[in-house]
Each structure stands twice: as C-alpha cells, then as structure tokens.
Design a protein around this nucleic acid. Structure first.
Length: 554
RNA sequence: UGGGUUAUGGUGUAACGGCAGCACUACAGAUUUUGAUUCUGUCUGUCUAGGUUCGAAUCCUAGUAACCCAACCA
C-alpha cells in the first residue's frame, strides 16, 4: 500500500517538462530585492524554489534584483544571505541583476534598432495621463515616432549623463490601447543619478524590473521562474521581451503568496514598524521576519516543515498562525532541554526539612532518554509559581491549596499545611511538609498525586530577565481592517519579567540550545544576554488545556 | 465600466468523470512525576442556478464573490 503523495501544480509542470524532454535539468532562482529583510513569506518562496530544484536534481541561483539603487543596501544583501543559509539552503551561484547592466543596455539598443523602443521626453505626469485607465485606452506619446538614429543618440546621451533625473525615459513601443496596462509602452530605463551598492557611479540609468528580471532569468538560463500572483500580468511583457530579443526562453509561473493571521507581510509595512519604533528592529522577536523568528528561538526545521504543510497553490490564503506554532512545538518537543524556572515567584517553606541541608537531585532533561540528565539542588526553601497555589481551590484543581498534596518535579511529594499573607491580602509564603520516602526515583507507589509543579531552590537560584512575547496584532488580518494597520497593534505584545528565578544549570546555557521551562513554554537565550546577565526569549507557550478550560467556564 | 486570476469544513491542502481524503484548529476521552507530549474519538465542506452523464468538486451554460493591474517600485 504505497501512499501516493500528490504533487503541487509546479511539481506537475516540472515533471511534465522533464518527461517531455523540454529540459534535462531544471534551474530555479530566488530573486530578492536587497531593500529589506526577508520574512516568513519569503521563506515559503525559498523553500519552494530550492526545494523544487533539489527534488528534481536541479539547482537554484540566488540573484539580487538590484535595479533601484536608491532603496537598496549591502546591509540587506548580507542579512538575506544569512537568512537563506540559516534556513539550510545552498545556492549554486550568487548573482546580481547589476552584473547584467552592460548586457541589458545592449538589449535596449537592440530594441531601439528594431524600432521597438523609443526615448520619451514626457514628464511622469504626462506619461501617466496618456496611459489611460483599465477601462479606457491610452494615447500615443508625441515622441513615440522618433527616428531610430535619434533614439539611439538620445539613449546614449542618457547613459552618458547628459540629462537630469526624470528628464527622459526609454520605453518599449508596444500598444497604448492594450487591455493589459503593462503593455502600454512600459518604461524600461529611467535616469537616476544615484550611487549603486555594487556598480557605484558607473551608471546613471537603470533598467526597470520588467526589463531586468526576465532577461536575467534568460541570461542564467533559468527554466522555471517562480514568482507570486501579482506578477501574472507581467508575464505577457516577460514573454514579449524574450521573444523580441530572441533570447533563451525562461518561463514564469506564479503561486499565491503567504498570508498569516495576526501579522502583516508587506515589506513596506514591516519597514514602518521598524522605522516608527513599534518594534526594536528587523529582528525583533515579534516580527514575522526570518531573523525575528530566529531570534525568538524558531528552528530552521520548523519553518521548513511549515512551508511543506501550507502547500503551494494559486488561491489567496490566510494561514492560521497556530499551524506555524504546531510545527515549532513538533520540533522543539523533541530537542528542547527541560529545565525549571519560576517566572512569578512565591516562597514555599518545607517546615519538616532540615535547615541548611542541600540535596543534589538528578533530573531528566526530557522525556526522551537521549537528552540525558542533570543535577538540580534542592533545599528547605523553594521558589514556586504564584499561580500554582490557591487559597480556595476550584473543582479539579491539581495544584497547591490548603491541605492538598503535589509532587515537586524530580523531588518529593509535599502537603500544604498553611500560608501567610500581608496586610494587602497577598500571599507571602506557603508552608508545607514533605514525605521523605516519596523522593523521585525511589520507586515508592503510595503517593498518587494529580499535580506536579516546578520549583527552584531559593539559596541556589540564579536570576534572569525573561521576555514574553505575544502576537503583534490584535486582529486576524490587520491589513484588511479599516484605517491604518498600526491601530491594531497589540499593546501587550511584549511583557518583560526583570527578575525570574532559574535553576543554576542555566548558567551554562548557550545560544544554540533550546529549552523548555517546564510547564511554562519554550525559551532560548537572547543575543543581548551577557555573562552575568541572562536574558531569555519565550519562543512559544506550551498548550494549556487548564487555562482553556477555565476561560471556557467563566 | 476593461483585462487577468481564483472559488472544496473555522484555516490550509488533495481528488485529474467513479467511496470528498489529509493536516491544523475546536471539542470529548485515555495515559502522564510537565493540566505538556503521546494515544483514541467527534463536529464541520465542493460559491449559486441550470444542463450533459448510469454517475459531476471535476465537463458545459449563465450568474455571484474575492484578489491583482492605471510607481520613472520590485
């Protein structure tokens, strides 16, 4: 009984192309513009492009689409490369559209010579006016029928820097009445006296996306050029340039971009969050950027699993954030080292435990044996979680309450004998007695308690800052709401606990390790941590059916 | 009022004229020294109206809805 794995539409196309002999091997490319950080939507595209090629024995190029020098920067180039590597992919070649500026210029000259391009002196306003609207045809520019020689000379002068920005553009000569707006004599070169991050001041004219992307694909002999749905109308132009230039016919295929609940996914919006200080930077753990997820503690494996599960299709989608979290927990549950940390402490005193005594207990690092064990110090006074005690317990309460018994994880069963409060009515201390024979691992079976709680020995406790993150937006689809998307930012997306108590083994924590603070969630060390100053980011909470039950009943 | 694209449970995604399946979510239960994990089960779906066919999510016709296109951005 072989499970037949169904193919997505791109895999079907590739298989058909391979089967028909159209291509012997396939070459894809990932083409980011270096003007921002990569986000989880790009991760989908990366997994798709690299994954598809790898599945069918092909390769993938990394090509920076750097045709607009005013918005692009090497900072972005570096971050993009780091993110792709971190995700676990290897590009066959690192290319730049700017590598092809000479060729692209020649292609433009070719079009002029064929009478398929012309220099237009119109202002951008005039060009826009003559462009028409989706329902009305455009009108020809007065410069449309310039002679080839004059066009050639003027284009050369554009390149030579004889004109100011915006004074002239080179346009393809197609059809001003075309039903596809992109075919109404699109601008293919514009003048920008700007410093380019790679070509410096060599050029003052730069090709537009449509005149760079398809040709770059063609130059690299990309077989399957995969992009998102909003480029569907561009395909006609893409094909037009390839045909008129008579160059290698790459083909463009489009898929639906990723949208995810409780976040925004456009670079423009993400840039706003950064520049307006709603987050601390592109790698703020609340950002849907790859660097943000990395800093928050996500693993490459979890993101790849997510990309696999969401599939690839051509319909608009809004993926539930919980699917990403599911993939994360699936991975972290296997690898995270279990440790104990108390985030909201209250003191527990074991009145029948010898004062000044310390026991060195052995605790497993996780349910799976390969994670090993570690030593955890135990003593008479412990920090426990304030929420693990209730003066008046509700039904089905498994934790501490006057008279109740709980297991202290990896240690003893204790029974609550009393508690103290301050004038404000706040619990300041809980007293209990322990049962020496109930020690963990002793094999005693007489203590059947429902609840197990975590703890940290008071004299051995280390302190750490803990950052708890919640979703960045209050609504499922902030981009679709009325008004400014920033009105929907969740004001409680970050909660900082200045002083949490953690077990001493965490002194050895590294950036590479993932931890589960038992019963509290998955955590990792933040990059801002210093020797003597531990800082942990909450990667994700654990599922909590108790909280769910309670909120459901109230 | 033009052109393009897409419609399958709450969310994604399969089916290629022949039993609408899988995953997430939600809910219920079992196990548990994490109210986690694990395991078992339950609910919910073919945009609408016609037609073709023994048989339609799939083919045809007509609608409807959503998204994209009028940057010298990509």
């Amino acid at each position: 009984m072989s499970e037949e794995k169904s193919l997505n539409f791109l895999e079907e196309i590739v298989e058909a192309d391979l089967a028909s002999g159209k291509y012997k091997f396939i070459l894809t490319r990932f083409p980011p513009e270096p003007n921002g950080y990569l986000h989880i939507g790009h991760a989908k595209s990366i997994c798709l492009n690299f994954g598809l090629a790898a599945t069918y024995g092909g390769q993938t190029n990394l090509r920076f689409d750097d045709t607009n020098p005013v918005t692009e920067d090497t900072e972005y180039v570096d971050s993009i490369k780091e993110d792709i590597r971190w995700l676990g992919f290897h590009w066959a070649n690192e290319f730049y559209a700017s590598d092809y500026f000479d060729t692209l210029y020649e292609y433009a000259v070719t079009l002029i010579k064929k009478g398929l391009a012309y220099v237009d002196d119109s202002s951008s306003e005039e060009i826009a006016k003559l462009k028409g609207t989706p329902t009305e045809p455009g009108k020809d520019s007065p410069y449309r029928n310039r002679g080839i020689d004059e066009n050639l000379r003027m284009f050369e002068d554009m390149k030579a820097g004889k004109y100011a920005d915006g004074e002239k553009v080179l346009r393809a000569k197609i059809d001003m009445a075309h039903s596809n707006m992109l075919m109404r004599d699109p601008i293919i070169y514009r003048i920008k006296h700007a410093h380019h991050h790679r070509t410096g001041d060599t050029w003052c004219i730069y090709p537009m996306y449509d005149f760079a992307h398809g040709q770059s694909d063609s130059i690299e002999r990309i077989t399957h050029s995969i992009c998102t749905l909003e480029f569907v109308p561009h395909r006609e132009l893409y094909d037009w340039f390839i045909e008129k230039l008579g160059i290698f016919p790459s083909h463009q295929y489009e898929f639906a971009r990723l949208n995810m609940t409780y976040t925004v996914m456009s670079k423009r919006k993400l840039l706003q969050l950064v520049t307006e200080g709603h987050v601390t930077g592109w790698d703020d753990p609340r950002m849907p950027t790859i660097s943000g997820f990395r800093r928050k503690g996500y693993t490459p494996e979890s993101i790849r699993m997510f990309a696999e599960k969401i599939g690839v299709a051509r319909r608009e989608n809004l993926i539930d954030l919980s699917l990403l979290e599911f993939c994360l927990r699936e991975d972290l549950n296997k690898r995270a080292l279990r440790v104990m940390a108390v985030l909201d402490p209250v003191k527990l005193v074991i009145t029948n435990y010898e004062e000044g005594k310390t026991e060195d207990l052995i605790s497993e690092n996780g349910p799976d044996e390969h994670l090993g064990t570690r030593h955890v110090p135990f003593s008479r006074e412990l920090w426990i979680e304030r929420e693990d005690f209730m003066e008046v317990a509700p039904k089905k309460w498994f934790r501490l309450a006057p008279g109740s018994m709980v297991r202290l994880k990896s240690a003893y069963v204790v029974q609550c004998t009393g508690y103290s409060k301050d004038e404000a009515g706040r619990v300041t201390e809980i007293q209990c007695e322990y049962f020496p024979e109930s020690r963990s691992g002793s094999g005693s079976t007489e203590f059947q308690v429902k609840g197990t709680i975590h703890w940290v020995s008071v004299p051995h406790a280390e302190t750490a800052e803990v950052r708890l993150y919640d979703r960045l937006f209050k609504v499922e689809n902030p981009a679709a709401e009325e008004g400014d998307f920033k009105e929907y930012i969740n004001p409680d997306s970050l909660q900082v606990i200045e002083k949490a108590y953690v077990e001493p083994s965490l002194l050895l924590a590294t950036m590479d390790d993932r931890y589960q603070f038992i019963r509290k969630g998955y955590f990792c060390l933040d990059k801002e941590a210093q020797p003597g100053k531990m800082i942990f980011n909450r990667t994700a909470t654990l599922k909590d059916t108790w909280v769910k039950q309670q909120s459901g009943e109230s």
